[in-house]
């Protein structure tokens, strides 16, 4: 596949932005493991709307691998990839259905991201009680998705005139 240089540069920039956001996010803690704002998802929502799911998936997976290499462990890679794959799949499907705005798509992404991480956590540790975190994480994911969706929609709107 031939990628235009401009697009390649843009994707690289988005990946870097997502990595910085996930680094910044690592300082924000709510006392519940896995509960995050999901700042890198702003980049993913933007990419999903401006370019498409393939580019978003590439940037998202690269982001997971690089942040895990830099700040995390092999295990954190498994968690973030599970969350990323699940949320991206759901977000792509919801966007294609054309029934929800960026905010709705982002909320679904936030919740499924947390669900994916919980599923991996249960599979790895074998402790089913971790599922008790799901309601807390679902509320958190809804609110986080709301904030991210609004922010993402703003960015999409403002960068509409920028030619990609």
């Amino acid at each position: 596949m031939r990628i235009k240089t401009k697009k390649l540069a843009l994707l690289g920039m988005c990946c870097a932005a997502a990595m910085i956001l996930s680094y910044v996010e690592s300082f924000i803690s709510f006392g519940v493991p896995g509960l995050k704002v999901g700042l890198p998802n702003i980049v993913m929502v933007f990419l999903l709307y401006r370019l498409g799911w393939k580019e978003t998936a590439a940037v998202s997976l690269l982001r997971c691998v690089l942040t895990s290499l830099l700040f995390g462990t092999v295990m954190s890679l498994a968690y973030s990839i599970a969350g990323a794959v699940l949320s991206l799949t759901v977000m792509t499907l919801l966007k294609k259905s054309d029934k929800f705005s960026e905010v709705g798509v982002s909320i679904a992404g936030g919740i499924t991201h947390n669900a994916g991480q919980i599923a991996v956590a249960i599979a790895v540790t074998g402790v089913e009680e971790i599922a008790y975190y799901m309601p807390v994480l679902a509320v958190g994911g809804t609110l986080a998705g709301l904030v991210i969706g609004v922010a993402g929609a703003m960015i999409i709107k403002r960068l509409k005139k920028v030619n990609i």
Partner: peptide, 24 residues
């Protein structure tokens, strides 16, 4: 924003919050 989409968004938020708060 598209009014229909806004409605769907709101329904999604309400359902998600209700279900998770109930489970909580």
């Amino acid at each position: 924003m598209d009014k229909k989409k806004l409605l769907h968004d709101l329904i999604l938020i309400a359902v998600c919050l209700f279900v998770s708060l109930a489970l909580w």
